[in-house]
Design a protein around this nucleic acid. Structure first.
Length: 259
DNA sequence: ATAGGCGCCTGTAAGC
DNA sequence: TGCTTACAGGCGCCTA
């Protein structure tokens, strides 16, 4: 499930390899399960030059010449490769001597020309403890549900929300409105720290999703999680799962370190 | 406005 | 060993 660090890893590789190149061909593969392929819009990208490779939350944005934009979400299982064959191809294009393939085996990915409404970028200065606290105030949903809500903060999924809550010492099921200002400050800092560390090691590659960067390398953050994917936390305590999943996700936490 | 639940997919792993 | 079943989750949509 590519989350912000994995998407950022992909973005950086794309930036290194295709920035400034011209898209000379564009081909569409299998469709998403629930929406038609915007064939015409995609065909119009042909001939455009890639002016910038950006990221917003879990979305990759290609800014192209002639005012065109390509927005792409990797979904649960999407990946990008430079011409390697990795099964189902959603679309591919040629940029200079690079063939860029967007793989999407489970078809949860999205291709579009615009972004949905998203909360602040967690690594930007705009994402502060104060802002976070404001977004959580008076909300009754579990804190983790709000961290997973892309309108509150953009880019967290189950792995990094779980990790950040552990670092901040907050139980995932705590009603968001009952997070104190001090805790919000810890949480904000923990989110930034966890994301930066994960980016620095190329994201997380789990057995069942096999995330690879466009050059085929796995991430290494799975070796450094405190909670996610473990039976015992780094703290040494046995981890517990919340009785009910939160926002549809299994939620592990340390009952001793998180309150 | 908010919160919770469901469905969409399919690769992997656990279970019989 | 080979089959079946459960599970994983991001997001959009639905309902109360």
């Amino acid at each position: 499930m590519p989350e912000l660090p994995e998407v950022e890893t992909v973005r950086r590789a794309l930036e290194r390899h295709i920035l400034g190149r011209r898209i000379t061909s564009f081909a569409v593969g299998r469709p998403a399960f629930n929406r038609p392929i915007p064939r015409l819009a995609l065909q119009r990208l042909k001939g455009s030059t890639i002016l910038a490779v950006k990221r917003r939350g879990k979305y990759i944005l290609l800014r192209l010449s002639r005012g065109r934009v390509l927005v792409c979400h990797l979904g649960m299982s999407g990946s990008v490769s430079f011409g390697r064959d990795e099964g189902h191809v959603r679309f591919q294009f040629t940029a200079g001597d690079r063939i860029v393939k967007f793989h999407d085996p489970r078809r949860f990915g999205r291709i579009d020309c615009s972004l949905p409404r998203l909360g602040p970028e967690p690594l930007s200065p705009a994402f502060t403890a104060r802002e976070l606290r404001r977004a959580l105030s008076r909300r009754k949903a579990p804190i983790k549900a709000l961290l997973l809500d892309q309108r509150i903060v953009a880019g967290l999924g189950n792995i990094y929300a779980t990790e950040a809550l552990f670092k901040a010492g907050i139980q995932p099921q705590r009603p968001a409105g009952r997070v104190s200002p001090a805790e919000a400050a810890r949480l904000c800092a923990a989110i930034k720290r966890v994301l930066r560390r994960a980016i620095s090691v190329g994201g997380t590659t789990l057995a069942d999703q096999a995330f690879r960067d466009p050059e085929g390398r796995p991430g290494r953050f799975q070796l450094r999680t405190s909670v996610y994917g473990r039976k015992r936390g780094v703290c040494g305590h046995a981890l517990k799962a919340t009785p009910k999943p939160i926002a549809g996700r299994t939620s592990l936490y340390c009952p001793i370190c998180q309150r």
